[in-house]
Amino acid sequence: MKKNNTLTKWIFNILFIVVAFIALFPLLSLIISSFRPSSELMRNGITFSINWNELSLSNYTHIFTQSPDYWAWYGNSLIISSLTIVLSLFFSSMVGYAMAVYDFKGKNLLFLCVLVIIMIPFEVLMLPLYQLMIDVNLINTYIGVMLPLIVAPTAVFFFRQYALGLPTELMDAARIDGCTEYGIYFKIMAPLMLPSFSAMAILQGLNSWNNFLWPLLVIRSNDLFTLPIGLATLLTPYGNNYDTLIAGAVMTILPIIVLFIFFQRYFVAGLASGSVKG
C-alpha cells in the first residue's frame, strides 16, 4: 500500500516536471535562440540542436547600436504604461471606494454599468471609438492609446470589493476630528487599500504593456509605435529584421518576468481578477 503511494507520487511529480518544462520551454528557447545568428534563425526556425560555436551577442549589439526605432518603441511603451497605471489607479480606486463606503442614489445602477462594460466585447465598440478618435484628433497620440484603459471596470470592481472590507468607524472618527471626506480618502483609506493598488498596478501595467488591437488602430507613425505594434511590423516571412525582432522580443518580456519573480503575490491577485466573477 505504502509503496504504491510513493510510486504515484513519483509519477505525478514527474508529470509536473514535464508540464512545467512545456510551459517554460517556449520562453527558454526564445532566449537561447536570441544568441543565434538571425539569418540562420530565419532559415531554420527554433531548433532542438544548438550549434554552440555559433552563439554570439550579435543580435544584442545590433539592437543596441543599430535599432533606434526599437528604443523609441520601448520609450513609448514605458510612458504609456506608466501613465495608464497612475491615471487608471487614481480614478478607478476613487470610484470603487465611493461605491463601497457611501450610500447614494444610483449606486446600484452604477454597479450595473460596471458589469455591462465588463461584458460588452471591446471589438464591438472599436469602430465607433476609432471614428470618435478621428473626430476629436486623438489619432496617433498617447492619450488616444490610453483613453479606453483609464477607467477600467475590472479595477473598479476589484477596488470596490477591497474597500467593502475597510473599517468605516475610522471615517466617523476622522470626521469628528474635522477631516474632510477627501482627506479621509487620501490620508486614511487609500493607504489602507495599498495591497489592492499593487495588484491593480500590475494588472493595468501588464494590460497596457501587452495591449495590441487598440494601439494597432490608433497609432500610425513609426515613432509612436508601442513595443507590440513595432515588433509586429517586423514579423514578416521575408523580413531581414530578425536580429531586432528576436532580441527585442526577449527584452520585451524580460523586465516583466523579473518583476514577476519579486512581486509574485500581486501578479497572481491582479491577474486572477483580470476577468471578474459575475
Binding site: 510551459a23 517556449p26 532559415r43 507590440p228 522580443a249
Partner: peptide, 24 residues
C-alpha cells in the same frame, strides 16, 4: 511555471510559435 506564459505579450508568443512551427 504554469503562470509565466500569461505574462507574455501576444506578439512575443507569435515570434516564438512562428519559429517553432517554421517550414524548415
Amino acid at each position: 511555471a504554469l503562470f509565466i506564459p500569461a505574462l507574455t505579450s501576444i506578439v512575443v508568443a507569435g515570434v516564438i510559435f512562428r519559429l517553432v512551427f517554421a517550414e524548415s
